[in-house]
Write a protein that binds this DNA or RNA. Structure first.
Lengths: 336, 336
DNA sequence: TACGCGTGTCGAACCGGTTCGATAAGCGGC
DNA sequence: GCCGCTTATCGAACCGGTTCGACACGCGTA
């Protein structure tokens, strides 16, 4: 690889002039500019990003930290982020916390050491959990999906309450009154919001929500399965189920299949988040889907805005909540 | 952040001694070692990875390049890689080529500029496609999943031919003779291998393979769907289908559902690669699954072996082919 | 003619480490 | 008492850029 010194020698100028030409061409005479450009071209020069990082105190890397990369939601999200980052000449370092706060802390420390120019973080843990390690970050960051109390920052997420409201309203309109809610891990922002939307809509519609059938399925297929088993074999079983996530919904569907309870004839099922391979899961599940591309694009833009802002600029914090979209499937119908 | 100079000052030694202590403690007197350790601890010192990268010409980053991150196979794979990398104190830069060779070239160039210590690459394009940009890589790399002619390197992959052989044999043993093969993108290593396994097993079993029902479904759900539509509505329709990938299988299943052709009563279906949410796809599809964790672990180990080897060491190239595992589902049965 | 100013270029310091060659101290052998 | 060897430490060069202050030059003005 050629260095800036090679270019300087060939162009017959000093290395500072070369650097100047590359970074602030308007400060360099036209003729010099041409010579440097030719020399750089001739030796195939491109600046070493590591040396730049060292001097500038910032690299052209972006960190993305999520709780579980295998979740298809994050896969899609990552793909979009990577695309945007690439367009802005940045690479993406991705890391999985497995929902462990101590992993999150360690990863953020690593990213800080690498002087990443920005971080996209889906924080783990309860809303009121520890957040010092996030608040003290020295580079721009954007939280997404999951909100955290006590952290002043840009945030991008879907309207979780609205998502369950839409599903709840849809079921009520179909005539359901005994609706069970298979919630996400309690304490988590998204889980609480989704539950809140459900309860609020039930209340607003004058339909009583029985606390005995508003359960915690921990964003987990197995729990979704087990809770559904319990609900559907217990007394006074619900005529409809709302699952707080795609994996919970699939667990629920599996339980119904095994119990021989037909969906939607005997029970309606709706869930939040797109179900991968939705087309082949029979019946097709009614879902409220998050607009992944929009979320990712917005998060990228918010982050890039801060990264590219001249130092010292004050940028107001943005909270962007995007509306989900309801996608009706064959899994919801009028109660028997 | 504190620098090595702070530590040196506090410990009352030179910066070279501090560096020596941290990198080759055995060359430093015990007493000095203690003083340095204490000083480092006191100021909370940890070496700047960027400065180290600049001087050493190598960073503690690993690149992982795949054709499509949203594919659940790669999601799982990435998660494992990231875990292993983290354990070895490395971060993972992930990049998606969208199966475009020009993206692959650009990404590899970026990774090289970042002086990543190693690269895990699922190369894109046909086996005989361009590979100069890979061969010229200046750092250790391991190819996985997809092989490339003309590149001497470590390789880790599943036994693709064996995977389709196992499925083919299973179907033949059940009594099928007219078996269709929904192949992957022709020209791609995995696709050719999978087809080869199918044809070889058919031939070895004395069952004629009708070329008219050995088709190309391009590793794509829509093509799987369309080809199945064509096959199942045409004359002399097959009694069994083998899909070269999970998405093809799902497309095929959807087509059968829509045509009202019952599986497995009227047609058997088997596929390669795990089907996500397998538990809720009815019927459960018989698959030959790749051992993802083993593949990822092996790839990590091969790469780390090269990364940590003292420079100049010659390491024989390894090609590791792991056997898939067959998982029987309800989608395959005796022909009517 | 002298002065001040704007423009273009340059040398040198610096970012934070690693590493090589030099040097000094300690020690045993003759 | 001196030589030579080992061991511990250090100074300085270097990795490849960026940036600040200095400086030379040409020009218009007083």
């Amino acid at each position: 690889m050629s260095t800036i010194r090679d270019v300087a020698r060939l162009a017959g100028v000093s290395i500072s002039t070369v650097s100047l030409t590359l970074n602030t061409p308007e400060r360099v005479a036209t003729e010099t500019r041409r010579k440097v450009a030719e020399a750089a071209e001739a030796v195939g020069y491109s600046a070493d990003p590591i040396a730049q990082s060292l001097k500038r105190g910032r690299s052209r890397l972006i960190g993305m930290v999520v709780s579980d990369i295998t979740n298809p939601f994050f896969g899609r999200f990552l793909q979009e982020i990577e695309r945007h980052a690439m367009a802005a000449d940045h690479l993406v370092i991705v890391s999985d916390t497995s929902s462990q706060i101590r992993n999150e802390i360690a990863i953020l420390r690593h990213l800080a050491a690498q002087r990443v120019s920005g971080i996209l973080l889906q924080p783990t843990g309860p809303m009121t959990g520890p957040s010092d390690h996030i608040r003290q970050l020295s580079m721009p960051f954007v939280l997404f999906d999951h909100r955290l109390d006590g952290v002043e920052s840009d945030f991008v997420g879907a309207d979780n309450a609205l998502a369950s409201s839409m599903l709840t309203e849809h079921l009520i309109r179909l005539g359901h009154r005994r609706i069970a809610f298979l919630g996400g891990t309690s304490g988590l922002y998204t889980a609480e919001e989704r539950k809140r939307g459900f309860l609020a809509t039930m209340a607003a519609s004058g339909v009583p929500a029985d606390p005995a059938i508003v359960v915690d399925a921990r964003y987990d297929g197995r729990h979704g399965y087990e809770q559904t088993m319990r609900l559907m074999t217990g007394p006074d079983r619900p005529t409809a189920l709302i699952a707080a996530s795609n994996v919970i919904a699939l667990g629920a569907l599996q339980a119904c299949n095994e119990l021989g309870i037909a969906c939607p004839a005997e029970v309606s099922l709706a869930g939040i988040d797109d179900v991968p391979w939705a087309a082949v899961v029979q019946p097709r599940i009614t879902t409220a889907v998050q607009p992944i591309e929009d979320l990712a694009r917005t998060a990228s833009e918010l982050l890039m805005r801060r990264i590219t802002a001249p130092p010292g600029t004050v940028i107001d914090r943005s909270e962007i909540i995007l509306a989900p979209e309801i996608r009706l499937g064959g899994s919801t119908a009028r109660p028997a």
